[in-house]
Design a protein around this nucleic acid. Structure first.
Length: 191
DNA sequence: TGCCCGATTAACT
DNA sequence: GTTAATCGGGCAA
């Protein structure tokens, strides 16, 4: 039986939690799969929503670790984050891509596409496939409808610059599973 | 109040 | 390769 991730798992540096999430399993109402791509956001750098202090939108980031922070992106999409570090650090991991393993018919119905590589490969796409919205902002990650299980196999992790940001672009805080077909974008091959 | 722009996606050329 | 869709946060005035 796979090991469930507890809140203490998230109560560490966001730079430790992010790579440990690669290969873990995320289910939401029984729909989901294997995490293959995440990004770390730390409150001390300007790319993080929490950089300028607490607001109504980012309040969950300033709470304890182990909760979901969901926000609207570009006025259209939803993005899912896991809050990390001791309360007040306001750091989180953005979930960017999942390899679908459970509930594929529901995902196809919600996304309107058949190709399984297009179901959850991107932060907005996976929220649409799992039907995650602002209603779920602030929910605990160790309690239904969320279910999280630690990886039980070895994974090769690659890192690179984060996607879609204009500030702190030098930080290589994007993590992915090497060779996965389900990444939102390829990682630049290492030299 | 008004303006700019974003942790994106899909549909274009 | 480019661009529209769409809306709330953040900041200037």
């Amino acid at each position: 039986m796979p090991k469930r991730l507890t809140r203490s798992f998230f109560n560490r540096s966001v730079l430790e939690v992010a790579p440990d999430l690669i290969g873990a399993t995320l289910l939401f109402d029984g729909v989901g799969g294997r995490l293959v791509e995440v990004e770390a956001y730390h409150h001390t750098e300007p790319a993080a929503h929490s950089f300028r202090g607490p607001t109504a939108r980012n309040a969950v980031m300033f709470g304890p670790a182990g909760y979901a922070y969901v926000y609207r992106s570009y006025g259209i999409h939803w993005c899912l984050n896991f809050v990390c570090e001791p309360k007040g650090s306001a750091s989180a991991v953005l979930i960017r891509a999942i390899e679908p393993t459970a509930g594929l018919p529901a995902m196809r119905r919600r996304r309107g596409v058949a190709d399984e590589r297009l179901l959850c490969s991107g932060p907005g796409r996976l929220c649409q496939a799992l039907r995650i919205t602002a209603l779920h902002n602030g929910l605990a990650l160790d309690w239904p409808p969320f279910e999280l299980f630690a990886r039980h196999d070895e994974v090769e992790i690659v890192t690179g610059p984060r996607i879609g940001i204009t500030k702190a672009v030098d930080k290589p805080w994007r993590y992915g599973e090497r060779g996965s077909r389900f990444l939102s974008k390829p990682f630049r091959p290492e030299v």
